[in-house]
Amino acid sequence: METSCCCGQYPLREIIQPIVERNGRDPSMLIQILHETQEAMGYLPQDVQQCIADELKMPPAEVYSVVTFYSRFTMTPKGLHTISVCLGTACYVKGAEAIIEKLKKTLAVGSGQTTADGVFTLDICRCVGACNKAPVVYVDNDQHEFVTPELMVEILSHYRDDQEYSAAESIVDPGLPEQEEAQL
């Protein structure tokens, strides 16, 4: 496969090469390289992994094995906003499950899935270490504390409004890095 350009739309190697370069072309920096690539591209599809493997001169299977092992790496594109509901023990005891149920109902998605209009991705995340403010929900990088199911719906509406949300405009084309960057 020709990896200098993944789908003919943007130069893949131009994104990945500098990232690999500033990490010293060091295979032991693979996780850091994947973090930075995901930050730049939004996700880590197969051809991206292939490109990284080429740059680091290691088997693509090894890159794939690392990508699939760690939960923060994703091979599918995410929505405009990622909702991460903390399901640490403190949040669980304070009712995080009810929030998840509410979100699943409101957004009509399961955990790890993206809404049909590509606006929200629902994630359940590991303890974020804000247990004294449980239950905690992250939307992108914003921390929301002492959340209740009712409050959650209100929070969602803010994010929809902020984007001047309209379903027609916000369909995310998974291939393009510019739109992916908007969520970061």
Partner: peptide, 22 residues
């Protein structure tokens, strides 16, 4: 940096992860 794997708190798993592996 870690990347979201609880088992990496185990010392030998952590060392593997520092080396960039699973």
């Amino acid at each position: 940096l870690g990347a979201g794997a609880f088992v990496c708190g185990e010392e030998t798993a952590l060392l593997n992860s520092v080396e960039g592996k699973r």
